[in-house]
Computed example of a mutant assay.
Amino acid sequence: MANIQIDHLGKRYGDKTVLADFSLDLTDGECFTLLGPSGCGKTVLLRLIAGFEKPESGTIRIDGQVVTDAGDGSSVSPDRRGLGMVFQDYAVWPHMSVFDNIAYPLKLAGIEISARRERTLRAIELVGLAGLDARLPSQLSGGQQQRVALARALVSEPRLLLLDEPLNNLDANLREEMRFEIKALQQKLGITILYVTHDQEIALAIADRIAVMDENGRLRQLGTPEEVYERPVDDFVFRFLGIANFLPVSRRDGALCVGDQAGDWPSLPPAHYGDTLTAGFRPGDVQLSRDGAGLTGTIRRASFLGAQFDYLIDIGGALIRTALPSHDALALGLLFDEGDACRVGFHSVQWFDRAIPTSDKV
């Protein structure tokens, strides 16, 4: 296991600054997910921690040992940092068997043959590839190749495991299966994992803590998955962690209105917020009915997605999405067609003290 301290890290490529004054701490034995859009510097940070690149400023410590110090130019080589890394593209050698791929780091380290075999077979079993050790990568599925890459990273018994979007090339079912297996492995082995991704579902599923980065490489929020999802610090975090609906709201004669309609809200914004507000909510936060209380809306799109119905609703010119479980829609008589009128209420909303531009691409 390993503690990681990243202090005031800076990295540039030419005149482009990727990371500026970036600081972050990881605690021993946690699964930490760095979540952000493509190009925000997530992979660059992993490469700096691994020692594949050097920063222009700042320091990196692993278990108190300085492994990178831009101030004096010192840098511990990647093979002496006690870490394993799994890349997005697997990077398995096509001419080597499963066994030889996984054993290769031990061979490079000069591990004696019998110990090398024992540790390699143990890693193969750990990732569920027992009996496949003689196969070539071309004889494996994408998920099995990713397991080879994971076993190769684990066979050296690293104190830190760096995962660079390793599930991106898998289909949806395999991604779901592998994300739970990675979490189970982390809990079983007790190692520290830093996982970078732009996929919020993976981040929420496996992380003990999440750091959300924006497109400029800045940390916007740090916390547990529940904290970040339920209490986002701003609309960027709210929008990035799933489908986000925004409704423009104004205070009018003591009421909170959308257009000329006064809404019935499950919570009120703080008193110090101004008169121009935005209500943010997820599709599952919408309470849909045919009549009664609520804002009046019009169904603009009705989509059956198997387990749920997805509706696009127009409320005074603002478009929102709602997801309704199919069995609820059938049982409650909430099967709508395009053009139908409906009533919209809310189970939960997040309040933002400003107008937030909404998109018609929802």
Rank of each mutant, 00 (worst) to 15 (best):
Q261Y: 05
D353M: 01
L335S: 08
L185H: 08
G64F: 04
A151Q: 11
H8F: 02
L332Q: 15
R209Q: 15
R117F: 09
V98E: 05
Q200I: 00
L256H: 09
L140D: 06
D214H: 11
A211Y: 07
V66H: 02
V155W: 01
H327W: 12
G259S: 09
R300C: 12
G39L: 08
V127W: 08
A318L: 10
R231Y: 10
L132H: 12
V362W: 10
G345K: 13
D133V: 00
A203T: 00
N169L: 02
F246N: 10
G280Q: 02
Y195M: 08
A2R: 08
L170M: 07
G259V: 04
L174S: 06
F281H: 08
H198T: 01
V67N: 00
L48A: 09
E118W: 00
L132T: 00
Q65V: 04
P166W: 09
T296E: 11
F180S: 15
G217P: 10
R135L: 06
T278C: 11
S303C: 10
R239Y: 01
D171I: 01
L204N: 07
I49T: 08
T298C: 01
G345P: 11
A205Q: 06
G143P: 14
P266T: 04
A203P: 05
G64T: 08
L247K: 12
F22M: 04
L219D: 07
G39D: 03
C31H: 12
T276I: 07
T276C: 08
W265E: 01
L305R: 14
G190I: 13
G29W: 11
V92S: 03
P158Q: 13
L189E: 05
P37I: 14
I6C: 03
P283Y: 12
V92N: 13
E125R: 15
S326H: 14
K188R: 15
A323L: 14
K361T: 09
A115L: 13
R152F: 02
H327E: 14
I356P: 01
S326L: 07
T43H: 10
I315K: 11
K107Q: 15
D25Y: 11
S75E: 08
E112N: 12
Q287N: 12
T68N: 07
A134Y: 03
G297E: 00
L129N: 02
L132V: 06
M1L: 12
L335N: 06
A211C: 14
A70D: 10
S138V: 14
Y273T: 03
M178F: 10
L204K: 13
G128I: 10
E165L: 11
L19C: 11
I202Y: 05
A207C: 09
